[in-house]
Simulated assay, not measured.
Amino acid sequence: MVIMEESRRERLTCLAVCAGAGGLALGLEQAGFDPVLLLDNRPVACETLRLNRPGWNVLETDLLDFDPEEHREVYDVDLLAAGLPRVKASAAVRREDSDEELRLIEATVMLMHGVQPRALLVENLAELAVKPAYEPIRSEIEAELAHLGYRHRWFVVNAMEHGVPQDRKQGVLVALKGDAVHDFVPPVPDVGPPLTVGEALGPSMAAKGWPHAAAWAAQADRVAPTLVGGSWNRGGPDLGMSGSKRSWARMRVNGGTVANDVPGPEDSWDPAPDGTDMVKLTVEQTARLQGFPDDWSFAGTKTFRYRQVGHATPPPVGRALGLAIRAALGHPAPALPSGW
Rank of each mutant, 00 (worst) to 15 (best):
E47T: 07
L39G: 09
G275S: 08
P189Q: 10
R95A: 12
A312Y: 01
P187I: 13
E101W: 12
M278Y: 03
P211S: 11
A215H: 13
A89D: 06
L195N: 07
D221N: 12
G339F: 10
D167C: 10
R288A: 14
D62V: 06
M112R: 02
T257D: 09
D270M: 03
P337D: 06
R118Q: 15
V74G: 03
S139F: 12
T257A: 05
G291L: 01
I3P: 01
I325S: 15
R168V: 01
T282S: 13
C46D: 07
P43W: 05
G330A: 01
A214C: 12
E161Q: 13
R42D: 14
S247C: 13
E101L: 10
D267C: 11
A259E: 05
A328D: 12
P265N: 07
R153T: 13
D261H: 09
L38I: 07
A272D: 13
R252S: 09
F304W: 11
S7G: 00
D65E: 11
R246T: 15
T286I: 05
A180V: 01
A143Q: 12
W340N: 10
A213D: 15
D179Y: 06
E10G: 08
L79P: 06
A217P: 12
G209I: 04
R252E: 08
E10Q: 08
V317P: 02
Q170G: 05
V58I: 09
V253G: 05
E127T: 10
R11I: 04
G275K: 04
V185Q: 15
V258T: 06
S90R: 09
L51P: 00
V279H: 04
P186H: 09
Q308R: 13
H162D: 06
S204E: 08
H182Q: 11
A218L: 12
G264D: 12
H71F: 15
D62L: 07
M1L: 08
G27D: 05
T226R: 00
D34R: 09
N233H: 15
E135A: 14
D99V: 04
D62K: 09
T61E: 05
G310K: 02
R95H: 13
P314S: 11
D277R: 15
E69L: 11
A333E: 14
K208Y: 15
T301L: 07
L26V: 04
L104K: 10
R95S: 11
T226E: 01
A16E: 15
W210C: 14
R53F: 00
T226L: 00
N233Y: 13
P136W: 06
R252P: 04
P132V: 08
M205A: 08
E140C: 02
V109Q: 14
F298I: 03
P225T: 04
E284F: 01
W210V: 14
A224C: 03
R319Q: 07
R86A: 04
V188K: 14
F66Q: 01
H331T: 03
P334W: 10
A31I: 05
S204V: 11
S338N: 09
Q170A: 12
S297G: 06
R307M: 04
T313N: 02
D183V: 00
R103G: 13
L329V: 13
R94M: 06
D183Q: 06
P165N: 05
L84P: 05
Q116M: 14
R50T: 12
G318W: 09
K245S: 09
S247P: 00
V44A: 07
A92R: 00
E100L: 14
